[in-house]
C-alpha cells in the first residue's frame, strides 16, 4: 500500500469522453450533481473533488462526468449556483472545448416556485419562469425572490 505523504493534492484520473466542470464553489458539487440528475444509481462514472485548493477560489469543487455533455438548460441552472464555473468538454482524453458559464436573463421550466400559492405551482399548463437577478432569482408569476437554496428548487 502506497503512502505518498508528499502529495497533498487530490488526484482524479483523466476521463476519456465527457465533461469536466471546474471552479465550482467549495461545497456545491452535490448540488451540481442534483442539477444534472446524477445520483450514481444509473451506473454513471464520475469523480468528484470537494474543497480542493484553488488559485481562483480559495476552495473549489471539481466534477468529472464520463460520457455526458450538458444541455443549455443545465448550464443555465449551473450558472446560478456556480457563476465562475468552467466547462471542459473532453473527447479521447483531450479538452476540445472550454467555456465559462453565462448567467441567462431568464430560466424557464427548470426551477419550481417555492411559493405554494403561486399559480405556476398548481396544475396549470405553464412552465415556471424565473428572472435571474444579480443575487438570486425571481418568479415571474408571483414575484417571490429566492437567494438561498436555489439548487433545492430544481425540478427533477
Amino acid at each position: 500500500m502506497s503512502d505518498d505523504r508528499g502529495d497533498h493534492e487530490l488526484r482524479v484520473s483523466k476521463i476519456r469522453n465527457g465533461t469536466v466542470i471546474d471552479h465550482v464553489p467549495g461545497g456545491q458539487a452535490l448540488n451540481v450533481l442534483a442539477i444534472l440528475g446524477i445520483d450514481g444509481s444509473e451506473g454513471e462514472e464520475l469523480s468528484v473533488g470537494m474543497n480542493v485548493p484553488s488559485d481562483r477560489l480559495a476552495r473549489k469543487d471539481i466534477l468529472k462526468v464520463e460520457d455526458r455533455e450538458l444541455s443549455q438548460d443545465e448550464v443555465d441552472v449551473l450558472s446560478l449556483i456556480a457563476p465562475d464555473a468552467t466547462i471542459n468538454i473532453v473527447r479521447e482524453y483531450d479538452v476540445v472545448e472550454k467555456h465559462r458559464v453565462d448567467r441567462p436573463d431568464v430560466v424557464e421550466g427548470v426551477l419550481s416556485c417555492p411559493n405554494d400559492g403561486c399559480i405556476s405551482a398548481g396544475d396549470e399548463p405553464v412552465d415556471s419562469r424565473f428572472e435571474v437577478l444579480d443575487d438570486g432569482v425571481r418568479c415571474e408569476y408571483c414575484d417571490t425572490i429566492v437567494r438561498e437554496g436555489i439548487a433545492s428548487l430544481i425540478d427533477t
Partner: peptide
C-alpha cells in the same frame, strides 16, 4: 383568483 400570478398567467 386566490393564487399569486394567476392574472399574469391567464393573460398569456
Amino acid at each position: 383568483h386566490p393564487r399569486e400570478g394567476a392574472a399574469t398567467m391567464a393573460s398569456e
